[in-house]
Amino acid sequence: MSDLPENLKYAKTHEWALLEDDNTVRVGITDFAQQELGDLVYIELPEPGRKVAAGEQCAVVESVKTASDLFSPVAGEIVAVNTALTDEPEQVNDNAYQAWIFCVKADDLSDLDSLMDAEAYGQLIEQ
C-alpha cells in the first residue's frame, strides 16, 4: 500500500482534498482509486463557474472498463479545472496526488471537517 500524504483530507468516495490559500480546495482522486479503476482514458471536467453542493457529483473519470463519478468534497464554486487531463488522463494513473482534477472555492471550510485524515482513510481502504 502506497503512503498516503498527511497534508490531504480524504472522502469516503476516494477523492483527496487540499486546502490552499483563499479558501480554495484542490481535488483529485486517490492512488487507491486510480488502482481500482485501472488505465484512465477520459475525464469529464466540470464547467468553471459552476456552483456545487458538498457531495454533489461534478466530474466523471472513465477507465478502459468503467465510468466512475467524482463528488465535490465541499460546497462552493468551481474556479479551476485541469484541462491537461483532457488529452492525458493517464497523468492520474502516473501520479494521482499531482494530477489534480478541479479546484472549488469553498463557501464554508467546515465542510472539510467531515472528511477523513490519512490514518482514517488508510483504515477504510485496508478493509
Partner: peptide, 9 residues
C-alpha cells in the same frame, strides 16, 4: 486477472 502490473492498455 483483470490486468497485471503494466495495465490493460
Amino acid at each position: 486477472p483483470v490486468h497485471y502490473r503494466k495495465g490493460t492498455l
